[in-house]
């Protein structure tokens, strides 16, 4: 299972998303490899990903993808992340 967190710079926000996604996955007892990257590298990074985590601003820019795109509102809300990951993966 591969999950990619996307942001503009691949430095701050996607890092936070990665950390909290890993916590949510641990809650769900799901093993997955979560990587953080930026929009410029998403085509390569997400080529074999099942799930892309991102904010509303990036959905359009992601374009066509085979992965499930999960739009996150509050990056710090583990309940939101857990529920959305469960719906996508469960």
């Amino acid at each position: 299972m591969k999950i990619v967190a996307i942001c503009g710079a691949g430095v701050g926000t996607s890092g936070i998303l990665k950390v909290n996604a890993e916590r949510a996955l641990a809650r769900l007892d799901i093993e997955a490899d979560v990587t953080a990257t930026d929009l410029a590298n998403v085509t390569v990074a997400a080529a074999d990903a099942q799930v892309i985590l991102t904010s509303p601003e990036f959905v359009e820019a992601l374009g066509k993808t085979n992965a499930d795109v999960i739009v996150v509102q509050n990056y710090f809300d583990l309940d939101e992340l857990t529920a959305k990951l469960k719906a996508a993966l469960g």
Partner: peptide, 10 residues
């Protein structure tokens, strides 16, 4: 360039 995505929580 990318929009207000840096507003990561309320």
């Amino acid at each position: 360039e990318f929009g207000a995505y840096i507003v990561i929580a309320p």
